[in-house]
Computed example of a mutant assay.
Amino acid sequence: MTDARTRLIQLIRDEAVFHGDFTLTSGKKASYYIDLRKLSLDHRAAPLIGDVLLELVDEFAPVAAVGGLTMGADPLANAVMHRAVARDRELDAFVVRKEPKDHGRGRQVEGPDVAGKRVVVLEDTSTTGGSPLAAIEALEKVGAEVVAVCTIVDRATGAGERIEAAGYPYRYAIGLEDLGLEAV
């Protein structure tokens, strides 16, 4: 276990796991909620997130860019990009809108051109896999080669299986057992 992963697990346990009655994106009820946006935008956690996700992304090298569905993946992609650049590596970030813009250039994928390039889709927590699959659909429409989906926390609710059934490798850095939680 890397030092960055160990420190990130502790920050998530201390500051991003909330207990109570929650409804997840899937509509399922849960007795806890993992709010990684609270940490992905935190100066202490962002470098750790970048390091942890970069380690997963490196399994699929070479990769030209990382990103995912806005808004959850935006700070993740930036964290990974900055950690790569700090290591003297070229890695861009992109953002996938839920829908193409209805003005300007009408783009759905923002950032550098990803046509013909190997990319990895990022997500903060995976429940159903719907967000990464939506991002993949948009990326493939513009000609990107999606080589994997990498997430910080897997909720053990079938997202990985759904993504892999669609033909994409799925990796996660932290499981529920790392956080002392059980699947819903």
Score class of each variant (00 low, 15 high):
residue 1 M to H: 10
residue 5 R to G: 03
residue 6 T to K: 08
residue 6 T to A: 09
residue 9 I to V: 14
residue 10 Q to D: 14
residue 12 I to C: 11
residue 13 R to V: 02
residue 14 D to N: 10
residue 14 D to C: 02
residue 15 E to N: 08
residue 15 E to H: 14
residue 18 F to K: 04
residue 18 F to G: 02
residue 18 F to Q: 05
residue 21 D to I: 09
residue 22 F to C: 06
residue 22 F to E: 05
residue 24 L to W: 06
residue 27 G to T: 07
residue 30 A to T: 13
residue 31 S to K: 13
residue 31 S to N: 15
residue 34 I to V: 14
residue 34 I to A: 12
residue 35 D to V: 05
residue 37 R to H: 01
residue 37 R to K: 07
residue 37 R to M: 02
residue 37 R to S: 02
residue 38 K to C: 14
residue 43 H to S: 15
residue 44 R to W: 12
residue 44 R to Q: 12
residue 45 A to Y: 09
residue 46 A to K: 13
residue 49 I to G: 03
residue 49 I to S: 06
residue 51 D to L: 13
residue 55 E to H: 04
residue 56 L to R: 11
residue 60 F to A: 08
residue 61 A to G: 06
residue 68 G to R: 13
residue 69 L to E: 11
residue 70 T to V: 14
residue 70 T to H: 08
residue 71 M to C: 00
residue 72 G to E: 11
residue 75 P to S: 02
residue 75 P to E: 01
residue 75 P to C: 01
residue 76 L to F: 08
residue 77 A to N: 01
residue 77 A to Y: 05
residue 77 A to G: 03
residue 78 N to Q: 14
residue 78 N to G: 15
residue 79 A to P: 15
residue 80 V to H: 09
residue 84 A to Y: 04
residue 86 A to V: 07
residue 95 V to S: 01
residue 97 R to N: 05
residue 98 K to Y: 15
residue 100 P to M: 08
residue 101 K to G: 04
residue 103 H to V: 04
residue 103 H to K: 04
residue 105 R to L: 01
residue 105 R to A: 01
residue 106 G to T: 04
residue 107 R to H: 11
residue 107 R to E: 15
residue 108 Q to C: 03
residue 109 V to E: 09
residue 111 G to F: 13
residue 112 P to E: 11
residue 113 D to R: 11
residue 114 V to W: 07
residue 114 V to A: 07
residue 118 R to L: 02
residue 118 R to M: 07
residue 119 V to W: 15
residue 119 V to N: 12
residue 120 V to S: 12
residue 122 L to E: 00
residue 123 E to Y: 05
residue 124 D to E: 11
residue 126 S to V: 14
residue 126 S to P: 04
residue 127 T to C: 04
residue 128 T to H: 03
residue 128 T to D: 03
residue 131 S to W: 07
residue 131 S to Y: 10
residue 132 P to W: 02
residue 133 L to R: 06
residue 141 K to T: 08
residue 143 G to F: 06
residue 144 A to Y: 15
residue 147 V to F: 09
residue 150 C to P: 02
residue 152 I to W: 12
residue 152 I to S: 09
residue 153 V to I: 08
residue 153 V to G: 12
residue 155 R to W: 10
residue 156 A to C: 07
residue 157 T to M: 15
residue 158 G to W: 06
residue 159 A to S: 11
residue 160 G to V: 12
residue 161 E to D: 09
residue 163 I to D: 00
residue 166 A to V: 01
residue 166 A to F: 12
residue 167 G to I: 05
residue 170 Y to R: 04
residue 171 R to W: 04
residue 171 R to F: 11
residue 171 R to Q: 01
residue 172 Y to C: 00
residue 173 A to I: 07
residue 174 I to Q: 06
residue 175 G to A: 07
residue 175 G to E: 09
residue 177 E to I: 14
residue 178 D to S: 02
residue 179 L to V: 00
residue 180 G to H: 15
residue 180 G to R: 13
residue 180 G to Y: 15
